[in-house]
Design a protein around this nucleic acid. Structure first.
Lengths: 189, 189
DNA sequence: AGGGTAAATGAACGTTATTCATATCGCCTC
DNA sequence: GAGGCGATATGAATAACGTTCATTTACCCT
Protein backbone atom coordinates (compact mmCIF):
# COMPACT_ATOMS: atom_id res chain seq x y z
CA UNK A 1 0.00 0.00 0.00
CA UNK A 2 2.86 2.35 0.82
CA UNK A 3 4.51 1.62 -2.50
CA UNK A 4 1.32 2.48 -4.37
CA UNK A 5 0.79 5.66 -2.40
CA UNK A 6 4.33 6.93 -2.87
CA UNK A 7 5.31 5.81 -6.34
CA UNK A 8 1.92 5.34 -7.94
CA UNK A 9 0.15 2.23 -9.04
CA UNK A 10 2.26 1.47 -12.10
CA UNK A 11 5.26 1.14 -9.79
CA UNK A 12 3.72 -1.86 -8.06
CA UNK A 13 5.78 -4.54 -9.68
CA UNK A 14 6.90 -7.75 -8.05
CA UNK A 15 10.52 -6.62 -8.31
CA UNK A 16 9.78 -3.21 -6.82
CA UNK A 17 7.80 -4.75 -3.99
CA UNK A 18 10.64 -7.16 -3.28
CA UNK A 19 13.14 -4.31 -3.25
CA UNK A 20 10.91 -2.35 -0.87
CA UNK A 21 10.94 -5.36 1.43
CA UNK A 22 14.68 -5.90 1.08
CA UNK A 23 14.21 -9.31 -0.46
CA UNK A 24 14.65 -11.12 -3.77
CA UNK A 25 11.59 -11.15 -6.10
CA UNK A 26 11.35 -14.92 -6.01
CA UNK A 27 10.99 -14.85 -2.24
CA UNK A 28 7.57 -13.25 -2.62
CA UNK A 29 6.23 -16.45 -4.10
CA UNK A 30 6.61 -18.18 -0.76
CA UNK A 31 3.79 -15.96 0.45
CA UNK A 32 1.58 -15.18 -2.52
CA UNK A 33 0.55 -17.35 -5.45
CA UNK A 34 0.55 -14.68 -8.13
CA UNK A 35 0.40 -10.99 -8.66
CA UNK A 36 -3.31 -11.29 -9.25
CA UNK A 37 -3.75 -12.74 -5.78
CA UNK A 38 -1.71 -9.87 -4.40
CA UNK A 39 -4.14 -7.45 -6.06
CA UNK A 40 -7.05 -9.28 -4.47
CA UNK A 41 -5.47 -8.89 -1.05
CA UNK A 42 -5.07 -5.19 -1.73
CA UNK A 43 -8.68 -4.96 -2.88
CA UNK A 44 -9.96 -6.62 0.26
CA UNK A 45 -7.83 -4.24 2.30
CA UNK A 46 -9.15 -1.19 0.42
CA UNK A 47 -12.68 -2.40 1.02
CA UNK A 48 -12.09 -2.00 4.75
CA UNK A 49 -12.05 1.75 4.17
CA UNK A 50 -15.60 1.65 2.84
CA UNK A 51 -18.11 2.82 5.42
CA UNK A 52 -21.25 0.65 5.67
CA UNK A 53 -22.18 1.75 9.16
CA UNK A 54 -25.33 3.60 8.10
CA UNK A 55 -27.03 0.40 6.98
CA UNK A 56 -29.38 -0.57 9.77
CA UNK A 57 -28.89 2.75 11.53
CA UNK A 58 -30.55 5.03 8.99
CA UNK A 59 -33.10 4.71 6.15
CA UNK A 60 -31.96 2.59 3.22
CA UNK A 61 -31.59 5.50 0.80
CA UNK A 62 -29.42 7.54 3.13
CA UNK A 63 -27.29 4.51 3.92
CA UNK A 64 -26.91 3.81 0.20
CA UNK A 65 -25.84 7.40 -0.34
CA UNK A 66 -23.09 7.47 2.28
CA UNK A 67 -21.93 4.01 1.22
CA UNK A 68 -21.68 5.13 -2.40
CA UNK A 69 -19.68 8.20 -1.46
CA UNK A 70 -17.29 6.19 0.63
CA UNK A 71 -16.98 3.49 -2.03
CA UNK A 72 -16.28 5.90 -4.84
CA UNK A 73 -13.72 7.88 -2.88
CA UNK A 74 -11.85 4.72 -1.94
CA UNK A 75 -11.54 3.48 -5.52
CA UNK A 76 -10.92 6.89 -7.05
CA UNK A 77 -7.60 6.53 -5.21
CA UNK A 78 -7.03 2.99 -6.52
CA UNK A 79 -8.70 3.14 -9.93
CA UNK A 80 -6.41 0.56 -11.58
CA UNK A 81 -7.96 -2.00 -9.25
CA UNK A 82 -11.43 -1.42 -10.68
CA UNK A 83 -11.13 -3.72 -13.71
CA UNK A 84 -9.81 -6.44 -11.42
CA UNK A 85 -12.50 -6.31 -8.78
CA UNK A 86 -15.30 -6.04 -11.32
CA UNK A 87 -14.68 -9.58 -12.56
CA UNK A 88 -13.38 -11.35 -9.45
CA UNK A 89 -15.54 -13.63 -7.30
CA UNK A 90 -15.92 -12.18 -3.83
CA UNK A 91 -15.59 -15.44 -1.91
CA UNK A 92 -12.13 -15.52 -0.40
CA UNK A 93 -12.16 -11.79 0.33
CA UNK A 94 -13.63 -11.69 3.83
CA UNK A 95 -14.02 -7.93 4.22
CA UNK A 96 -15.63 -7.71 0.81
CA UNK A 97 -18.13 -10.40 1.70
CA UNK A 98 -18.86 -8.64 4.99
CA UNK A 99 -19.53 -5.40 3.16
CA UNK A 100 -22.03 -6.94 0.76
CA UNK A 101 -23.70 -8.78 3.61
CA UNK A 102 -24.25 -5.50 5.42
CA UNK A 103 -25.58 -3.79 2.30
CA UNK A 104 -27.94 -6.66 1.47
CA UNK A 105 -29.22 -6.85 5.04
CA UNK A 106 -29.77 -3.09 5.11
CA UNK A 107 -31.82 -3.11 1.91
CA UNK A 108 -33.86 -6.06 3.08
CA UNK A 109 -34.55 -4.38 6.42
CA UNK A 110 -35.50 -1.25 4.49
CA UNK A 111 -38.25 -3.15 2.73
CA UNK A 112 -36.75 -4.14 -0.60
CA UNK A 113 -37.91 -7.52 -1.96
CA UNK A 114 -35.29 -10.26 -2.03
CA UNK A 115 -35.41 -10.75 -5.77
CA UNK A 116 -34.42 -7.16 -6.54
CA UNK A 117 -31.71 -6.56 -3.97
CA UNK A 118 -28.78 -7.95 -5.92
CA UNK A 119 -29.79 -6.09 -9.07
CA UNK A 120 -30.06 -2.84 -7.13
CA UNK A 121 -26.64 -3.36 -5.57
CA UNK A 122 -25.03 -4.29 -8.88
CA UNK A 123 -26.61 -1.32 -10.65
CA UNK A 124 -25.43 1.15 -8.01
CA UNK A 125 -22.01 -0.48 -7.92
CA UNK A 126 -21.67 -0.25 -11.69
CA UNK A 127 -22.26 3.46 -11.45
CA UNK A 128 -19.80 3.78 -8.58
CA UNK A 129 -17.02 1.88 -10.33
CA UNK A 130 -17.59 3.74 -13.57
CA UNK A 131 -17.37 6.98 -11.64
CA UNK A 132 -14.20 5.85 -9.90
CA UNK A 133 -12.56 5.26 -13.27
CA UNK A 134 -13.81 8.60 -14.50
CA UNK A 135 -12.18 10.24 -11.50
CA UNK A 136 -8.81 9.08 -12.84
CA UNK A 137 -9.36 10.76 -16.19
CA UNK A 138 -7.55 14.01 -17.07
CA UNK A 139 -9.59 17.20 -16.66
CA UNK A 140 -9.37 18.05 -20.35
CA UNK A 141 -10.65 14.70 -21.58
CA UNK A 142 -13.55 16.34 -23.44
CA UNK A 143 -11.58 19.23 -24.91
CA UNK A 144 -12.19 19.38 -28.62
CA UNK A 145 -11.81 22.03 -31.37
CA UNK A 146 -15.12 23.85 -31.67
CA UNK A 147 -14.92 23.64 -35.47
CA UNK A 148 -15.19 19.87 -35.15
CA UNK A 149 -17.97 19.72 -32.55
CA UNK A 150 -19.48 23.14 -31.82
CA UNK A 151 -22.22 22.09 -29.41
CA UNK A 152 -19.94 19.81 -27.46
CA UNK A 153 -17.25 22.48 -27.18
CA UNK A 154 -19.84 24.92 -25.89
CA UNK A 155 -21.38 22.71 -23.20
CA UNK A 156 -17.92 21.62 -22.07
CA UNK A 157 -17.07 25.29 -21.65
CA UNK A 158 -20.31 25.88 -19.75
CA UNK A 159 -19.29 23.45 -17.07
CA UNK A 160 -18.21 25.32 -13.97
CA UNK A 161 -16.41 24.35 -10.80
CA UNK A 162 -13.10 22.62 -10.24
CA UNK A 163 -13.58 18.92 -9.59
CA UNK A 164 -15.61 17.99 -12.66
CA UNK A 165 -15.58 14.25 -12.04
CA UNK A 166 -16.94 14.75 -8.52
CA UNK A 167 -19.73 17.02 -9.78
CA UNK A 168 -20.81 14.41 -12.33
CA UNK A 169 -20.76 11.76 -9.63
CA UNK A 170 -22.91 13.84 -7.29
CA UNK A 171 -25.43 14.54 -10.03
CA UNK A 172 -25.51 10.89 -11.01
CA UNK A 173 -25.84 9.61 -7.47
CA UNK A 174 -28.71 11.98 -6.69
CA UNK A 175 -30.35 10.81 -9.90
CA UNK A 176 -29.94 7.14 -9.10
CA UNK A 177 -31.29 7.60 -5.58
CA UNK A 178 -34.29 9.54 -6.84
CA UNK A 179 -35.01 6.80 -9.34
CA UNK A 180 -34.68 4.11 -6.68
CA UNK A 181 -37.11 5.95 -4.40
CA UNK A 182 -39.59 6.08 -7.28
CA UNK A 183 -39.22 2.36 -7.79
CA UNK A 184 -39.46 1.61 -4.08
CA UNK A 185 -42.62 3.67 -3.65
CA UNK A 186 -44.19 1.91 -6.62
CA UNK A 187 -43.58 -1.47 -4.99
CA UNK A 188 -46.55 -1.43 -2.65
CA UNK A 189 -48.92 -1.41 -5.60
CA UNK B 1 -10.92 -6.75 -34.97
CA UNK B 2 -10.96 -10.22 -36.52
CA UNK B 3 -8.15 -11.33 -34.24
CA UNK B 4 -10.06 -10.18 -31.15
CA UNK B 5 -13.26 -11.81 -32.29
CA UNK B 6 -11.68 -15.17 -33.09
CA UNK B 7 -8.97 -15.59 -30.46
CA UNK B 8 -10.22 -13.27 -27.74
CA UNK B 9 -8.85 -10.02 -26.47
CA UNK B 10 -5.81 -11.39 -24.65
CA UNK B 11 -4.58 -12.75 -27.99
CA UNK B 12 -4.23 -9.24 -29.39
CA UNK B 13 -0.49 -8.92 -29.11
CA UNK B 14 1.73 -7.03 -31.49
CA UNK B 15 3.41 -10.28 -32.53
CA UNK B 16 0.08 -12.03 -33.11
CA UNK B 17 -1.23 -9.12 -35.12
CA UNK B 18 1.91 -9.10 -37.24
CA UNK B 19 1.62 -12.82 -37.87
CA UNK B 20 -2.02 -12.37 -38.86
CA UNK B 21 -0.88 -9.78 -41.40
CA UNK B 22 2.02 -11.92 -42.62
CA UNK B 23 4.58 -9.39 -41.50
CA UNK B 24 7.31 -8.92 -38.90
CA UNK B 25 6.27 -7.30 -35.59
CA UNK B 26 8.60 -4.38 -36.08
CA UNK B 27 6.92 -3.52 -39.36
CA UNK B 28 3.78 -2.48 -37.48
CA UNK B 29 5.64 0.48 -36.01
CA UNK B 30 5.80 2.09 -39.44
CA UNK B 31 2.04 2.53 -39.16
CA UNK B 32 1.21 2.89 -35.47
CA UNK B 33 3.12 4.63 -32.70
CA UNK B 34 2.34 2.23 -29.89
CA UNK B 35 -0.03 -0.47 -28.82
CA UNK B 36 -1.96 2.12 -26.88
CA UNK B 37 -2.59 4.06 -30.06
CA UNK B 38 -3.73 0.86 -31.72
CA UNK B 39 -6.26 0.40 -28.91
CA UNK B 40 -7.50 3.95 -29.45
CA UNK B 41 -8.06 3.19 -33.13
CA UNK B 42 -10.01 0.11 -32.13
CA UNK B 43 -12.03 2.14 -29.65
CA UNK B 44 -12.94 4.71 -32.26
CA UNK B 45 -13.95 1.90 -34.57
CA UNK B 46 -16.08 0.24 -31.91
CA UNK B 47 -17.79 3.56 -31.28
CA UNK B 48 -19.09 3.47 -34.85
CA UNK B 49 -21.32 0.60 -33.76
CA UNK B 50 -23.05 2.82 -31.19
CA UNK B 51 -26.40 4.04 -32.38
CA UNK B 52 -27.08 7.75 -31.78
CA UNK B 53 -29.73 8.11 -34.43
CA UNK B 54 -32.57 8.67 -31.97
CA UNK B 55 -31.11 11.98 -30.79
CA UNK B 56 -33.03 14.68 -32.60
CA UNK B 57 -35.59 12.21 -33.87
CA UNK B 58 -37.20 11.24 -30.57
CA UNK B 59 -37.54 12.73 -27.05
CA UNK B 60 -34.28 13.06 -25.15
CA UNK B 61 -35.07 10.33 -22.63
CA UNK B 62 -35.93 7.76 -25.27
CA UNK B 63 -32.84 8.67 -27.26
CA UNK B 64 -30.71 8.35 -24.13
CA UNK B 65 -32.21 4.94 -23.51
CA UNK B 66 -31.49 3.47 -26.92
CA UNK B 67 -28.04 5.07 -26.94
CA UNK B 68 -27.25 3.52 -23.56
CA UNK B 69 -28.37 0.09 -24.71
CA UNK B 70 -26.29 0.27 -27.83
CA UNK B 71 -23.27 1.64 -25.94
CA UNK B 72 -23.37 -1.04 -23.28
CA UNK B 73 -23.80 -3.87 -25.74
CA UNK B 74 -20.84 -2.67 -27.79
CA UNK B 75 -18.44 -2.54 -24.84
CA UNK B 76 -19.75 -5.65 -23.18
CA UNK B 77 -18.07 -7.33 -26.16
CA UNK B 78 -14.85 -5.34 -25.75
CA UNK B 79 -14.71 -4.87 -21.98
CA UNK B 80 -10.90 -4.77 -21.74
CA UNK B 81 -11.09 -1.50 -23.66
CA UNK B 82 -13.16 0.17 -20.94
CA UNK B 83 -10.28 1.17 -18.65
CA UNK B 84 -8.50 2.63 -21.66
CA UNK B 85 -11.31 4.75 -23.01
CA UNK B 86 -12.31 6.02 -19.59
CA UNK B 87 -9.10 8.00 -19.23
CA UNK B 88 -8.26 8.90 -22.82
CA UNK B 89 -8.96 12.36 -24.32
CA UNK B 90 -11.48 12.09 -27.11
CA UNK B 91 -9.83 14.56 -29.48
CA UNK B 92 -8.12 12.55 -32.21
CA UNK B 93 -10.90 9.96 -32.27
CA UNK B 94 -13.25 11.40 -34.89
CA UNK B 95 -16.14 8.99 -34.50
CA UNK B 96 -16.03 9.37 -30.75
CA UNK B 97 -16.18 13.13 -31.02
CA UNK B 98 -19.07 12.85 -33.48
CA UNK B 99 -20.95 10.64 -31.06
CA UNK B 100 -20.64 13.06 -28.16
CA UNK B 101 -21.57 15.96 -30.40
CA UNK B 102 -24.78 14.21 -31.35
CA UNK B 103 -25.60 13.36 -27.73
CA UNK B 104 -24.88 16.90 -26.51
CA UNK B 105 -26.94 18.44 -29.30
CA UNK B 106 -29.81 16.06 -28.58
CA UNK B 107 -29.89 16.94 -24.89
CA UNK B 108 -29.70 20.65 -25.63
CA UNK B 109 -32.54 20.39 -28.15
CA UNK B 110 -34.48 18.43 -25.55
CA UNK B 111 -34.32 21.38 -23.21
CA UNK B 112 -31.42 20.59 -20.88
CA UNK B 113 -29.41 23.61 -19.72
CA UNK B 114 -25.88 23.85 -21.08
CA UNK B 115 -24.19 23.72 -17.70
CA UNK B 116 -25.66 20.32 -16.80
CA UNK B 117 -25.30 18.47 -20.11
CA UNK B 118 -21.74 17.23 -19.64
CA UNK B 119 -22.44 16.05 -16.10
CA UNK B 120 -25.52 14.16 -17.28
CA UNK B 121 -23.57 12.51 -20.08
CA UNK B 122 -20.65 11.61 -17.81
CA UNK B 123 -22.97 10.21 -15.14
CA UNK B 124 -24.86 8.04 -17.62
CA UNK B 125 -21.63 6.97 -19.27
CA UNK B 126 -20.12 5.99 -15.92
CA UNK B 127 -23.07 3.71 -15.34
CA UNK B 128 -22.78 2.28 -18.85
CA UNK B 129 -19.07 1.55 -18.61
CA UNK B 130 -19.44 0.07 -15.15
CA UNK B 131 -22.19 -2.16 -16.49
CA UNK B 132 -20.06 -3.17 -19.47
CA UNK B 133 -17.34 -4.34 -17.10
CA UNK B 134 -19.90 -6.15 -14.99
CA UNK B 135 -21.06 -7.96 -18.11
CA UNK B 136 -17.63 -9.58 -18.33
CA UNK B 137 -17.84 -10.96 -14.79
CA UNK B 138 -18.51 -14.66 -14.18
CA UNK B 139 -22.08 -15.57 -13.26
CA UNK B 140 -21.10 -16.90 -9.87
CA UNK B 141 -19.22 -13.79 -8.78
CA UNK B 142 -21.47 -13.34 -5.73
CA UNK B 143 -21.58 -16.98 -4.68
CA UNK B 144 -20.66 -17.26 -1.04
CA UNK B 145 -21.11 -19.87 1.72
CA UNK B 146 -24.34 -19.04 3.54
CA UNK B 147 -22.63 -19.61 6.89
CA UNK B 148 -20.41 -16.63 6.14
CA UNK B 149 -23.08 -14.26 4.81
CA UNK B 150 -26.60 -15.63 5.24
CA UNK B 151 -28.59 -12.67 3.91
CA UNK B 152 -26.35 -12.23 0.90
CA UNK B 153 -26.52 -15.92 0.06
CA UNK B 154 -30.29 -15.78 0.24
CA UNK B 155 -30.83 -12.74 -1.98
CA UNK B 156 -28.32 -14.07 -4.49
CA UNK B 157 -30.37 -17.25 -4.62
CA UNK B 158 -33.56 -15.24 -5.02
CA UNK B 159 -32.31 -13.73 -8.25
CA UNK B 160 -34.03 -15.36 -11.19
CA UNK B 161 -33.44 -15.36 -14.93
CA UNK B 162 -30.38 -16.18 -16.95
CA UNK B 163 -28.48 -13.04 -17.95
CA UNK B 164 -28.01 -11.50 -14.52
CA UNK B 165 -25.73 -8.69 -15.68
CA UNK B 166 -28.27 -7.62 -18.28
CA UNK B 167 -31.08 -7.60 -15.72
CA UNK B 168 -29.08 -5.37 -13.39
CA UNK B 169 -28.31 -3.06 -16.28
CA UNK B 170 -31.97 -2.79 -17.27
CA UNK B 171 -33.01 -2.03 -13.70
CA UNK B 172 -30.26 0.54 -13.34
CA UNK B 173 -30.96 2.22 -16.65
CA UNK B 174 -34.67 2.52 -15.90
CA UNK B 175 -33.73 3.97 -12.52
CA UNK B 176 -31.33 6.51 -13.97
CA UNK B 177 -33.84 7.61 -16.60
CA UNK B 178 -36.57 8.01 -14.01
CA UNK B 179 -34.26 10.09 -11.88
CA UNK B 180 -33.28 12.24 -14.86
CA UNK B 181 -36.93 12.87 -15.73
CA UNK B 182 -37.51 13.97 -12.13
CA UNK B 183 -34.61 16.37 -12.36
CA UNK B 184 -35.67 17.65 -15.78
CA UNK B 185 -39.23 18.33 -14.65
CA UNK B 186 -37.93 20.20 -11.62
CA UNK B 187 -35.91 22.52 -13.86
CA UNK B 188 -38.75 24.80 -14.87
CA UNK B 189 -39.21 25.94 -11.28
C1' DA C 1 21.75 -33.15 18.98
C1' DG C 2 19.03 -33.42 15.08
C1' DG C 3 15.24 -33.26 11.92
C1' DG C 4 11.77 -30.73 9.81
C1' DT C 5 9.78 -26.57 8.20
C1' DA C 6 9.53 -21.93 6.62
C1' DA C 7 11.73 -18.70 4.03
C1' DA C 8 15.39 -16.65 0.99
C1' DT C 9 18.34 -17.04 -2.97
C1' DG C 10 20.22 -16.66 -7.73
C1' DA C 11 19.75 -18.26 -12.07
C1' DA C 12 16.86 -19.13 -15.66
C1' DC C 13 12.59 -18.85 -18.84
C1' DG C 14 8.97 -17.08 -21.77
C1' DT C 15 6.38 -13.28 -22.95
C1' DT C 16 5.71 -8.47 -23.61
C1' DA C 17 6.31 -3.98 -26.24
C1' DT C 18 9.62 -1.41 -28.47
C1' DT C 19 14.01 0.43 -30.98
C1' DC C 20 17.44 0.60 -34.49
C1' DA C 21 20.35 0.07 -38.38
C1' DT C 22 19.82 -1.90 -42.60
C1' DA C 23 17.71 -3.43 -46.77
C1' DT C 24 14.14 -3.60 -50.34
C1' DC C 25 10.58 -1.95 -53.44
C1' DG C 26 8.33 1.24 -56.44
C1' DC C 27 7.31 5.78 -58.11
C1' DC C 28 8.63 10.39 -59.70
C1' DT C 29 11.81 13.41 -61.86
C1' DC C 30 15.63 14.74 -64.63
C1' DG D 1 16.36 5.13 -68.94
C1' DA D 2 19.27 6.58 -64.56
C1' DG D 3 19.07 8.23 -60.09
C1' DG D 4 17.12 9.13 -55.94
C1' DC D 5 13.67 9.46 -52.47
C1' DG D 6 9.97 7.94 -49.62
C1' DA D 7 7.45 4.32 -47.75
C1' DT D 8 7.76 0.02 -45.91
C1' DA D 9 9.79 -4.58 -44.37
C1' DT D 10 13.36 -6.99 -41.83
C1' DG D 11 16.08 -9.25 -38.14
C1' DA D 12 18.58 -8.53 -34.25
C1' DA D 13 18.57 -6.59 -29.91
C1' DT D 14 16.78 -4.62 -25.41
C1' DA D 15 14.43 -3.85 -21.13
C1' DA D 16 10.70 -4.96 -18.33
C1' DC D 17 7.70 -8.09 -16.59
C1' DG D 18 5.77 -12.31 -14.02
C1' DT D 19 7.07 -16.75 -12.77
C1' DT D 20 9.59 -21.39 -11.83
C1' DC D 21 13.02 -24.22 -9.82
C1' DA D 22 16.69 -26.43 -7.38
C1' DT D 23 19.27 -25.24 -3.72
C1' DT D 24 20.63 -23.22 0.53
C1' DT D 25 19.95 -20.84 4.93
C1' DA D 26 17.91 -20.12 9.42
C1' DC D 27 15.28 -21.37 13.19
C1' DC D 28 12.15 -23.93 16.26
C1' DC D 29 10.65 -28.12 18.42
C1' DT D 30 11.35 -32.58 20.01
Amino acid sequence: MELIKVRGYAALTMAALARQLGVAPSALYNHVNSKRQLLLWIQDHVNREIDCSDFGARPWDEALESWAHSYRDAYARYSPLVPVIAVTPIAGSPHTVAMYEQVAAGLRAGGWPDDQIVDVVVAVESFILGSAMDAAAPDDIFDVPSAQAPVLAEVVGARVGRDAARAAFELGLATVLAGLRDRFNALGG
